[in-house]
């Protein structure tokens, strides 16, 4: 799950770069840039939420193993 989210973040990052390069008018890209920033910030913090779940599971499984 976390790996899929990392791939999604990477895909959005690559998409922003390719849009910045491919759009002739920089203002066209500028229209989307802020939304990308908000979404990337949100996804990076969702990744921390998944990390919380992962570390929690690790603690529980290692505690139950003794």
């Amino acid at each position: 799950m976390q790996f899929a989210l990392c791939l999604l973040i990477l895909a959005i990052g690559v998409l922003t770069l390719s849009l910045e390069i491919s759009l002739d008018n920089y203002d066209d890209y500028d229209d989307y840039e802020d939304a990308f920033e908000w979404i990337l910030a949100l996804l990076i913090h969702v990744n921390f939420l998944l990390a919380w779940w992962g570390w929690r599971t690790t603690t529980h499984s290692s505690a139950s193993q003794g």
Binding site: A41, L42, H45, V46, F48, L49, A51, W52, W55, R56, T58, T59, S62, A63
Partner: peptide
């Protein structure tokens, strides 16, 4: 290591919620 994992889980939860 279990204590570190427990602490890190709590900090990760704080980092998921607080900055957002």
């Amino acid at each position: 290591p279990q204590m570190i994992s427990r602490d890190i889980a709590r900090v990760a939860l704080v980092l998921a919620i607080l900055p957002t």
